[in-house]
Design a protein around this nucleic acid. Structure first.
Lengths: 144, 144
DNA sequence: TATTGTTATACTCTATAACTATA
DNA sequence: TATAGTTATAGAGTATAACAATA
């Protein structure tokens, strides 16, 4: 109970720790998926497509919380890698419907392996109980 | 136990969740400290100075894991706000020793309040037990 | 006229490299 | 010659705004 909130108070917060550790985690993951020719956002798009099977670019933009123009660039790159297909929606020819290809599913699996390897490295000093508590807490937070 | 790792496998990892939630947390925090004229990195620098009282810019750069040129810019801005003082080290006049001012401590306290407010918003749907488990887990991870 | 996707452009963040002054 | 700090420059990442096609 200090008079004035100092660095200890800031360091005790969730946002501060999530922010700093999140940046560290993102960096470790980015290093590993780089070998696949991907950035973390590509992995996020692949995961979103796998979860929903197919989606228009606008839907994906709002689901991932990024600008539609970024989806264009990510999809261009994933298409060049053979990971996604773009099909005009016949019912509304303005819409481009993105779907994962077999290669896209293979890439997604490699991303998951990269993430698991990064996890092993990042959490090597944690007990199984600590890791489980952390995973549970993050899942609960993400489900809001 | 699926044949191929899909989006579920990726979403189950620590790095994926830390990365996505970390970006969200950083964003919420950034929005709140913006009213103070600060970015999250300024708050990080203030916290580092509060924890160590005084430090050279090179030391701060390696402690925060950023380039020395970024410390220059952050310190310039904090100095303009009256939050830090720059003093030449008389024993080695190449070194600029940064110290927090009373205004700097006040700003840091405001950052801590901003982080606590962001926490309340972010974790509103969590039980006290979930929040405690999460905080503990993050602390353990950060201490490695 | 409104919406989807695309392209063009600009902005933010941060690092690298060149430079100055001290050692 | 080497180091601390500074300045100049460049690159990555992403958003905003203008545009084209379709509704």
């Amino acid at each position: 109970m200090s008079d004035v909130k100092g660095s200890a108070a800031l360091r005790a917060t969730l946002v501060f720790n999530l922010g700093t550790l999140g940046a560290l985690a993102a960096d470790r993951f980015a290093t590993r998926v780089e070998a696949l020719g991907l950035k973390p956002k590509h992995a996020g798009l692949l995961a979103a497509l796998d979860a929903e099977s197919a989606a228009s670019q606008q839907e994906l933009a709002s689901r991932l919380g990024v600008a539609p123009s970024l989806i264009v660039a990510l999809a261009d790159q994933l298409q060049a890698l053979g990971a996604v297909e773009r099909l005009r929606d016949p019912d509304d020819r303005r819409r481009q419907v993105l779907t994962l290809t077999a290669e896209g599913r293979r890439l997604l699996a490699r991303c998951a392996e990269a993430a698991e390897a990064a996890d092993a490295e990042l959490a090597s000093g944690l007990t199984a109980a600590q890791l489980a508590a952390l995973t549970d807490g993050l899942r609960a937070l993400g489900e809001q």
